[in-house]
Design a protein around this nucleic acid. Structure first.
Lengths: 149, 149
DNA sequence: TGACTTTCCATAGGTGCACTATATATTGTC
DNA sequence: GACAATATATAGTGCACCTATGGAAAGTCA
């Protein structure tokens, strides 16, 4: 463990956890479960996907994704289509309403974050801004290596 | 909104969300639900508390906290005690086993984070280290103002 | 071609964990 | 000693996940 005194992973982990719970309980439009919101977000940002691929991407079982998509479809947020080349697969895509809702939620969460950030001292705000690419890099590493993370 | 081009709140929010989900699905000892883990963590770090206070702190209903504490008690992680001055209240405290488990989970999550951080370029790692106090400040702001966040 | 295996999705049954509404017990007030 | 307020427990309900299994379509090979 190359533990650097300047980087306390326990503090970082705790702060990340608490910050996310803070954002999660902020009121967002749409009343979606975390998994539903994440799935919709994935569909909006990366385009249509088949059910099994979605389940893998969201780390839920395939039956859970079938149910989740059924709920989203009932809410008019996604549509199910057929693959012309393979009669088994279901192609899930976000509807216009789904896209709008996802973007609205993203914007609302951004508002909350922006409000909090605006009350932070300038140097701390700058420190967070400087860390954003690094945090994204961390996520990319974790996604690429699901075994360890 | 004083939107600075250097701080994309949407990117920050997305990165935080994905990072937390990454950490959440990493295997931790104890098999606790997120709410249970958070409650145990609160008890370990801030000491014994009454049921209603715990429910408020964790943002769940009082019956949900009653159930949660019952599960934690059955697992031997917390103990329920009486208040000598008020026969109605239940004082919940972490047992030694609960304290050990919570610390072990915190350490395990730190390990995962440390592993990921170790594979990040030095400058990015430094950027995250520099942002830790600011992230903690953000959490403090959010906790102090539950209305907006 | 026809049987076998694989892949993709749906359904069934069960569980965990949250919620609202309500009951019970204790405390403080008049 | 009623009465209101507070702290917790119980009942009933619903959502969202899981494993196990079923059925349909596609690929494989004698």
């Amino acid at each position: 463990m190359e533990s650097q005194p300047s980087l306390d992973v326990a503090r970082l982990g705790s702060a990340l956890d608490r910050l996310t719970r803070l954002l999660r309980r902020s009121s967002l439009p749409g009343d979606l479960s975390p998994a539903a919101a994440s799935t919709l977000y994935t569909l909006v940002t990366t385009g249509p996907a088949r059910l099994t691929a979605l389940a893998a991407a969201e780390h839920v079982s395939q039956p859970a994704m079938t149910q989740l998509v059924a709920r989203l479809e009932a809410a008019g947020l996604v549509a199910r289509g057929a693959d012309p080349d393979d009669g088994r697969v279901v192609i899930v895509s976000a509807t216009d309403a789904g896209r709008d809702l996802s973007l609205a939620r993203r914007a609302a969460r951004g508002e909350v974050l922006a409000t909090l950030l605006g009350r932070l001292p300038r140097d701390q705000r700058d420190a967070i801004a400087a860390a954003v690419p690094a945090l994204e890099g961390l996520v990319a590493l974790g996604d690429a290596d699901p075994g360890r993370a």
